[in-house]
Amino acid sequence: MRWLSEGKTLPVLTVVAAIVLAWYVGTFVLNAPFERDQATRAGTEIGFSQLLSRTMAQERPVLPAPHQVIEELWDTTVAKKITSKRSLVFHAWITLSATLLGFAIGTVLGVALAIGIVYNRAMDKSVMPWVIASQTIPILAIAPMIIVVLNSVGISGLLPKALISTYLSFFPVVVGMVKGLRSPEAIQLDLMRTYNASGSQTLWKLRWPAAAPYLFTSMKVAVATALVGAIVGELPTGAVAGLGARLLTGSYYGQTIQIWSALFMAAALAAVLVMLVGVGERLVMSRMGERP
């Protein structure tokens, strides 16, 4: 039982339980005024137990109860056909494909730019400040414009969303990889020099392996931001498909349960993506001979 008292499992579970409890209380408090209002309009008194059961089962609650959200999640993922437009898996897949494409392009671009920055002093001095400055720009603000503009020239579908994901995910990769490619110590670089190693040999045999841990750390951040980019990219296209579209239609029609279930789906997607990168990290690092 030691792992219970000293590990993270018990505290985390306790906090989660507290959050769920607070959620139920919040559901009751936030939804009760509507039910009371209904009761006074109908001219009837409403008892506490009745109030409690009704606040937990409203059709358009201010705050849906956790079990309502889970029910909706189950309903839209397992009970519906995947090809159906009402299936959450269908929407999640659309968002996921844009995320993955953007993440892949962003990572490749980021690594390429980082290599350029490390090997060219002029690029380091001129590009690096702008890469950092570009992140103080709320780039998501441009998302709707990129989508609409690309739509008007006939590029639609996956690519515009993926481009937004690319832009968001490339920054952490550049910064992390510049740091990682510079992480070999002077003594190691000197050794490569004594071997008369060329630039590309130094890159592939020393800098690249040394940068691997940095790459994975930044990829974890990048994949999470890529998902955010894809979701926001789905907002302005008239809400056709994808998790962002579910959020938008949900907010248009007051379908709070739909919003919450889309939100949970997005959260689960982010968690799985970050975890997958983590698994890849452990595989690569153990192949490289790292012992935990």
Partner: peptide, 18 residues
């Protein structure tokens, strides 16, 4: 701390914008 921090780290990676 042990309960909240892992959750905080987790939530930081979520698309909170939703």
């Amino acid at each position: 701390k042990r309960g909240l921090l892992p959750l905080g780290n987790f939530v930081s990676a979520l698309p909170i914008i939703g």
